[in-house]
Amino acid sequence: MNARRWASRLHLPTLGVALVIVAAWLALSWRYGAYVLPSPAAVARGFADIVASGEIWRHTAASLGRIVVGFGGAVVVALLAGLAAFLSRTARGVIHDFVSVLNSTSVFVWIVISIIWFGLSNWAPIFTTFMITLPVIASNIVEGVENVDRRLLEMGDVYRLAGRQKFTAIVVPSTLPYLLAGMKVGFGLALKVSVVAEIFGVTSGIGYVMNYSREILATQMVFVWALVMILVMTATDKLVFDAISRRLDRWR
């Protein structure tokens, strides 16, 4: 393989830019001090600490646990919405409208509502994650359902396939790429939103420990946990979503 392909495989251009940014970071943190902008070395040390102490796993697991529940719930409801959209044009219209409403509702509204309804508990981040990711995944699924090739469905009619056979053989495989795209975006959103919701009232998780670090003026730990979030997202993308995507795309 020639040099250029290796370079792009390893994301060398990106790494190059990243190095420039780190150099700029070093300079700026030296200029502005550790509270405003901790040095890259301090962040690296902080990261090593939480790995050594095992804290990284404790808080990451706590956050992921809540995300999986909220996100999982959203996927289930979105699938039901997709089924309804397939069966009924009226349902499709209703779903579109509700999705618009949900999309325009701010994260904070859900956080406040969930604290009022569920108190300061795990349910605040879970409910918030659910309400924010639901419209994203649902609108992707509905778009997938709307974009099923009508000519293939007609072929199904010609050969007298039953409704259920048309659904599993034609609608589902046709919609899966849309679902996966929605889930990928939704998961990224879930991560960001859940972490914010964790500021209010829980005692574990990435959002909690980030906020705690801010309160005790350990700014470098805020950056460390931000790095952890980036790693979680990258790992999920590569190990989960891209793997599923490759499997689904076998036939292309």
Binding site: E154, M155, Y159, L161, Q165, P173, W251
Partner: peptide, 24 residues
Amino acid sequence: VVFQEDRLLPWMTLRENVELVLLP
């Protein structure tokens, strides 16, 4: 019916495409 476009399901092999219409 054989249409102008093949209307095969792209995510199934040729064999699976033919087997599908034998289901009913």
